[in-house]
Simulated scan of single mutants.
Amino acid sequence: MIESKESGMSFSQELAQSPCWASRWLWAAGIYNLAWGALAIAWPHLLFDLTGAERINYPEIWQCVGMIVGVYGIGYLIAASDSRTHWPIVLVGLLGKVFGPIGFLVALLRGTFPPLFGLTILTNDLLWWIPFMMILLEAAKHYRATSQPTGIARQQFVKQTKINASPDVVFRFHESPDALQQLIPPWENIKLVESAGSLQPSSRVVLRGSLGIMPIQWVAIHTEYDPPHLFADLQESGPFAYWYHRHRFLDDGQGGTPLRDEVEYAVPLGVIGRWLGGWLVRRKLEAMFAYRHEKTRSLIESREWTSALAASER
C-alpha cells in the first residue's frame, strides 16, 4: 500500500480543498485559449480582417501563435484540477498576459498595429489579471498555512507489506548487524560506512554514495525504540531538507506482521524542488521500499535469516 500525503492530508483531500472558484476560472481560461487557438489555426487572416490590420505575408506564423495559445489552454485545464499544486502554470500564464499588452503598446507607438487590434487585449489578457493573481495569492496562503513551523512543506510516504512471521522475529531481523546493508537496492550507488550496531536512541548510521555525479553523505540518528513494535530515525544531514522514518511492526493476531514504513520528508529547494523533482523522489521511494519489503519478506519467510540467527546463538 502506497500513500502520498502532505501535512497529514491525503492527495485526494488536498485536491478537494482547492477552491472551486479558481477551478472555474482556469476551466474558462483553458476553453477560451483552445477556442482562440483553433480559430487562429483555421482562419489565420480573420482577426486581421476584422480589425482592419494588414494581412501578414506568412499566415503560418499566426497559425503557430494559435498552436502556442492552445498549449496554454491545455496547461490551464491541467491547473484547474488543483490550482494549488499547479500554480507555476498560472504564474507563467499571468506573465504572458502582462508582457502581451506591453508588447502591443510598443507596437502601437511604432504604428505597427491599428488601435482596433488592441480590443483583443481585453479578452486575451486584461480579463484574466485579477483572477490569476487571486489564484496565486490563494496558493501562497495555502502553502504558508500548511508548512511546518520550520517553514518546510513536508510530504508523507507509506509502504505496508504482510510478513508471515511474528513482530518479534521481524524486529530482530532489523536489529541484526547486516540488515541495513542487505536492504540497500543493488541499483543504488550507496554503501553503509558507519553503524553503531544498535537501533536505540542516539545511535548513528552513516551512508555514502553518489547521486549521478554528485557525492552524498547521509547521516541518520535513531530517535525512537519500542521493541518489537517500533523504531525510528531522523536525518541529521543528507540529501533531503527533512527526513523522519518510522518502522512499525504490527501484529495481525494470526502470527503475521504487517510491516509498515512511514516516511515524512521534504525535498530541497522548497516549492521549486517539489515542482521539478518531487515526482522523481516519489518514484525512487516506491522502488526502494518495494525492494526493501520484498527482500525482508524473502529472507524471513525462506528461513534463510532465521536459520543463520539460530546458528549464531548456539
Rank of each mutant, 00 (worst) to 15 (best):
90 V>M: 11
83 S>K: 04
87 W>R: 11
217 Q>E: 14
156 Q>L: 00
240 F>D: 00
32 Y>T: 05
41 I>N: 03
297 R>D: 00
175 E>G: 14
137 L>D: 02
45 H>V: 06
212 G>E: 10
27 W>P: 02
288 M>E: 00
97 K>D: 02
92 V>F: 12
138 E>P: 02
275 W>S: 07
111 G>A: 06
297 R>W: 00
205 V>T: 14
106 V>E: 10
128 W>C: 04
29 A>G: 12
295 K>S: 00
115 P>A: 09
274 R>V: 11
173 F>E: 12
313 E>G: 01
301 E>N: 03
95 L>F: 12
108 L>C: 12
268 P>V: 06
203 S>A: 07
23 S>M: 04
219 V>Q: 06
262 E>L: 12
279 W>V: 03
94 L>I: 06
255 G>L: 03
222 H>Y: 11
44 P>C: 09
44 P>L: 11
162 K>A: 07
298 S>C: 10
209 G>L: 09
214 M>F: 12
84 R>C: 08
308 A>M: 08
94 L>R: 08
190 I>C: 15
233 D>H: 02
41 I>G: 01
307 S>K: 10
230 L>D: 07
305 W>Y: 01
134 M>D: 11
305 W>C: 01
70 G>Q: 02
136 L>M: 12
59 P>C: 06
95 L>S: 08
86 H>S: 15
80 A>D: 01
102 I>S: 06
268 P>G: 00
80 A>L: 00
120 T>P: 05
177 P>G: 04
195 S>W: 10
254 Q>I: 04
13 Q>T: 09
212 G>C: 04
